[in-house]
Write a protein that binds this DNA or RNA. Structure first.
Lengths: 209, 209, 209, 209
DNA sequence: AATGAATGAGGATTCATTCAT
DNA sequence: TATGAATGAATCCTCATTCAT
């Protein structure tokens, strides 16, 4: 159904902009220019729409991390760098969905509703963490905190993605325009996180940046 | 006013648990065991209550960062360490308030409502960033990205504080209990961030951790 | 819409009986035997309902006065008499609406809300006044006060229409029943106003009533 | 009590401006700069305040009409003229109270609440009417409708007093300022009504105005 | 006499949802 | 599949009033 897809598109956009609670199905219907009752009809309920959006997108998150993890041609540092690349790419590309997802995941109640998504996210996290642990065991990496290391990677990205106001204030220059729209910002973030994590994981002799 | 203070307490707790939109003034009134109309009486409206909570707490955020920044007995690295200490302490202690604050700040619309709080937060951020910049100028620090460095500090903390579900899953062990309640977790986080930032800022010759 | 029309009917009746403020949308919904939310659904708000009623009825007021004014087969006195006829007929027939209208128009604040209605009313008034002025210029009428003459016409009618209690007391006889229900009362009022205005406008030599 | 009197003053003003229902006791308290609870304390209730205002003022209406009626030095026409004078004077002087009174009397429900005031008003009306009837019996006046004649007197005055918006539109000139504030307007109204009623009551041979 | 805090009833409105078509 | 009308529950808020002081 074209209409169904269209509603999901608009729904996600509005959920991202205004939040799930604040967005009414009237908002969605009027922005999507479809009848009010159609949302309940297609998705059963407002929450049904959200679940649909989650299911559709969650699949997107899987697999790639796993493939990187299993690639025998890469050493641990290369794997971590690729994974950072992958996360930033996914999150920047689907930043609307990630905003919705994070907001939902931050509301502790919703465990059951989004357990699929949480499962995928957690699995991915554990893969990243296990790579770091492997590097530590091999003494390639310093003996640092793998879980918190992952938290720093994902936390940095999320903080930059979601705190629109602060992002504009700190990175937007005098005109306070949103840097997320500029492609250079994505590169800047990627470079920063990869560098920071590398510095953290590996003690180099000469690092002049 | 004892009652007024009590309402604010309960309000903040519920806002933190369920979110601002989801929490009804009925919830607050019944949990605080006060009359429904008392909230409007004291704070004018639900939003008035939120604003009051913000104003009361926002003051808490100020000044200390500034004092650290001006302390001439400290070098730049020490200052950054202390600031990390300070942020973690503040945010762990007032984690309920910070949850509410972040959620509100992440809903891009609310700029005007909470501009005071945003101002304070932004100012503090700029102080931290300027310390890092000073260190870079002095060639004490590597030539890294100061703004994103701050984003990593604050992003790590917030991610750990707010994503309750993920936190339990990744750090909670088999019983998935919330690590935030254990004092050791705070120490662990502090150590991680300080170490990671130090590794990032300074290239050491011999670092065996 | 049958339901929409029905709600307007019931609304007007209750507004007329109890006044706009005193009438709750619950009153209207329960008397009209429709769902409470339907009023907001159809008219947006309680005030929206009022505005709708006004718009629907206000159109009723227009045109006829203008036609009388332009009828070249009539002299000025005949025109004034016909206009009195017309006003009494309209107001007696739609006395519910006129009660609401007058109550609203008497609450000086509502200028903006009901400006359309006020405009129509004022225009009509000016047409009547201009006819009287024409008669004065032609020396057919005495040199009296045209605006206040109109005020007496309309003031008499409204006073009789709206002060239900006084009307019953003074015209209702011993049983204090409402004379407005008797067709003879309308004739009596018409005759009185026409006579009074004619006496005022024209000095007759022999007037034995 | 000075405060009590002050509250009544302010109450009447607001009731006149905004209507009884629309005026809240908060409005009154804040405008009178007294505590909210004081109104209930002094007058028992909001309605109690209204009743108090009515009782205080209603007394004002009595007596004078009766005295005119009994003055043996005056003929019927002179009496009617004086009564018109008296009504206009009273109503213009206390126009705030009359606005409140009329609005209340026009809401058919309130019969019981304001029965004292209605009694006084009705008695006065009957005195005026009886004078006209006497004039008719004596063949001094034409055989016109005494009750409706009184309705025209009082209706004209009330219409001019209460329909602020229309008054400004029709009598306010281009600037639409309120003519009621100019002393000349009162004279103009008095002259008009007296003339109109005289023309109606008495057929003159030569009336050049 | 006067107050600030507190109350309970009731206000309009908005929401997601359902139903007949 | 799609719609406009209709629904009932829940929302925030305002009101007049009361009570302890």
């Amino acid at each position: 159904m074209d209409t169904k897809e269209h509603i999901m598109q608009v729904g996600m956009q509005l959920f991202a902009e205004k939040g799930y609670e604040t967005t009414t199905i009237r908002d969605i219907a009027s922005k999507a220019k479809v009848n009010l009752a159609l949302i309940s009809y297609h998705f059963g309920s407002k929450e049904g729409l959200l679940k649909n959006i989650f299911q559709q997108r969650a699949l997107n998150l899987q697999f790639q991390i796993w493939e990187i993890s299993n690639d025998k041609s890469l050493n641990e540092l290369q794997k971590v760098h690729l994974m950072i690349d992958y996360y930033i790419d996914k999150i920047f590309t689907n930043h609307q969905f990630h905003r919705v997802m994070m907001r939902e995941l931050f509301s502790s109640q919703s465990e059951e509703v989004h357990s699929d998504t949480i499962d995928i996210f957690t699995e991915n996290a554990k893969i990243v963490i296990s790579i770091i642990e492997k590097g530590i065991k091999k003494k390639v990496f310093r003996n640092i905190d793998p879980e918190l290391c992952f938290a720093s990677i994902i936390g940095t990205i999320h903080h930059l993605m979601h705190s629109t106001i602060l992002r504009k204030r700190i990175f937007g220059g005098k005109e306070k325009k949103d840097p997320i729209l500029e492609p250079s910002f994505k590169k800047r973030v990627t470079k920063h996180i990869q560098q920071m994590i590398e510095h953290h994981l590996i003690a180099e002799k000469n690092n002049n940046n």
